[in-house]
Simulated scan of single mutants.
Amino acid sequence: MSADEDKYPGDSGRRRFVKGVVGGATLAGVGATGSAAINSVTSSSGAGGGAIEAMAIENTAGPAPRGMPQIPVEIDGGELKGVWPEVKEVKEGGRTIKVAETELGGKTYSSAWFQFCGVESYEAVQPDYEPEQGNYFLAPSSATYDWMSDLSEGDRLTVDMFSDYESWGNGIGVDGLGKPANGIWRSLDTENDLLVNVIRSPVIEELAASGSAEGADGETYEVSDSVQTWLQASTAQGFVAWLNKCTHFCCVPKYKGLDGSAKFDAANEVYCPCHQSVYEPFSIVSTLFAARPRPA
């Protein structure tokens, strides 16, 4: 069966969820419960796990229990970087461990946001790991988008590459919502790639500036004052990024990367073809879950 085929027939009740009805707030509780059950047999031998509140792009349809965690963005001389939290030592379970967390935009941003789907074992998310290439977003070995075909693995993503973000399109969904890139972060020289998606979008730009935006898709996007404060601290010049690991079964979703996404009303959203989970990149929400502990 191809990735674009409908795995769950319409009369099975398993395929579609109503967008805006079953959202991040409701599903976050499911994710927390499920993750807690899994972690109950692993937490004693690990470090830095437990209940975590993270900011994420909202899951709006499909079986994923919560959104994918956001990575704060900063711009360094025109090059895109993901912010890494401050490393510190804390007492946990009678021992001293290292954690990476910092206060940002009214939230506690932590490396534990990325401790799910086995990512907690990646070298790149160990609090004190210092990648040779720094925290820059880098081109991957396999690009999702045609415009990235001239890039080599390890090239830094730059602001200039997204200059047409207000009009960009690739025939999937509506043009002008934003220009995406897939990439890797903190992991060029490690065994496991930390996969990310980045979008430069006028919607994100306006949400950070005023808390409200009209998208090229005709949708009105709004955020609360607290989320606007977070966006002002975690986005830059309309850039938003997230760890691109589906919270359902660890697959790799795509924003405007699959023609078949239109069948699931996801042509303008982030779509995971494995089990039809959908994420809204322009809806940033708080989500609760039990972060898996890192290996001791």
Rank of each mutant, 00 (worst) to 15 (best):
G118Q: 03
Y109R: 01
G176H: 09
W113N: 10
G257T: 03
K107V: 09
G77M: 01
K7D: 12
V174N: 15
D4W: 06
E79R: 07
E130F: 03
D193F: 12
V203G: 02
P127F: 14
S283F: 07
A181S: 11
W168M: 04
E191V: 07
A100P: 01
A266Q: 03
T60C: 04
L177Q: 04
K256R: 08
M161E: 10
F114E: 07
T26C: 13
N192G: 07
R15Y: 15
N192Q: 15
G94P: 07
V252Q: 10
A139N: 11
A56C: 13
A233D: 03
G13H: 02
D225N: 04
R14I: 15
L194G: 08
G50C: 00
E79H: 10
E153G: 12
G257N: 05
A290F: 14
V278Y: 10
T144W: 12
T229E: 15
G173P: 02
D150I: 11
G211Q: 01
A216C: 06
D193Q: 06
V90S: 00
K256P: 00
Q70F: 11
Y122C: 08
E130P: 05
I199F: 02
V41E: 12
G105R: 00
S110N: 02
A28C: 09
G46M: 08
G93N: 09
S152A: 15
V223D: 06
V99D: 09
A47H: 08
E123Y: 10
G24F: 04
P140D: 09
W147V: 08
S201H: 02
F282L: 05
M68L: 13
D217L: 08
S167N: 09
N135A: 09
V285Y: 02
S234V: 00
R292Y: 13
S234F: 12
N170P: 06
T229S: 13
S167Y: 01
A61R: 09
